[in-house]
Amino acid sequence: MKPSPARPASPELARFEKQQAVLLTSHKKDGTGVGTPVHFAVDGDHAYFRTFGRAGKVKRLRRDPQVEIAPSTLRGRPTGPGLRARVRPLERGSGEYARAARLINRKYPVQQGVLVPLWHKFRRDATLHYEVRPVPEEAPPAP
């Protein structure tokens, strides 16, 4: 059976669809933002990224799932406006986890399909996948 392709991007995420990297800003306990460039695969109204299990952002995301995402260079320099989002860890072994892995591997076949999994295995570190959903902007209060 052929894997299903990614769904068309929602208007909020359309600008991230062809991005090579996205700056994901998570927050420390004191509210300070920490930006990290990640590979990002858009799937309709949400997107996915993967990371090492021992990465610093995992601890920050566990404590506060509110993030900002912005298009960026591979080194993490923002190239456009960002938006607020919420992340959710995906359960290993679930269909959603497998779909996230397929979409990321398809978008970045050499780096994420081969090199990153080998590096995770070499480091003996878990591979985690997260779902990212934009948070709707709050409407201004009525006068």
Rank of each mutant, 00 (worst) to 15 (best):
F122I: 15
P143W: 14
P78E: 11
F40E: 03
L13K: 01
R124W: 11
R75H: 14
Q111G: 03
F40N: 03
K57P: 06
P143H: 12
L83F: 04
G53P: 10
Q66T: 15
L103V: 04
D64Q: 13
K18A: 15
T32P: 06
A6E: 12
S10N: 06
K121R: 15
V116A: 09
A98K: 09
K59Q: 13
A70R: 15
H120T: 11
D125M: 08
K121S: 08
K2I: 14
G80T: 11
E68Y: 03
R7K: 14
P3N: 11
T73G: 06
G56F: 04
K2C: 05
V135R: 09
R99Q: 12
A139K: 14
A9I: 03
Y97Q: 02
A101N: 10
R106G: 11
S72N: 09
I104E: 06
G35H: 06
R133V: 13
H39D: 06
D45W: 01
V114R: 12
Y97T: 00
Y97S: 09
Y108W: 10
L115T: 01
A70H: 09
R124I: 06
F52T: 06
F49K: 10
K107I: 08
A14V: 08
E17P: 04
D30R: 10
E96R: 11
L13G: 01
S4T: 14
T51L: 04
K121A: 15
V116C: 00
R88E: 15
E17R: 15
Y108S: 09
H39N: 12
E91F: 05
T25A: 12
V58R: 05
Q19T: 06
P78L: 10
R102T: 04
E138N: 00
A85N: 04
F16G: 04
A85D: 07
T25E: 14
P109F: 11
L74C: 05
R63H: 10
V114E: 03
M1F: 13
A55F: 09
E17C: 11
R60T: 08
V87M: 02
R75E: 14
A70G: 10
H120S: 00
F16H: 05
K59W: 03
D125G: 04
H27M: 08
P89S: 02
G35W: 10
Q19S: 15
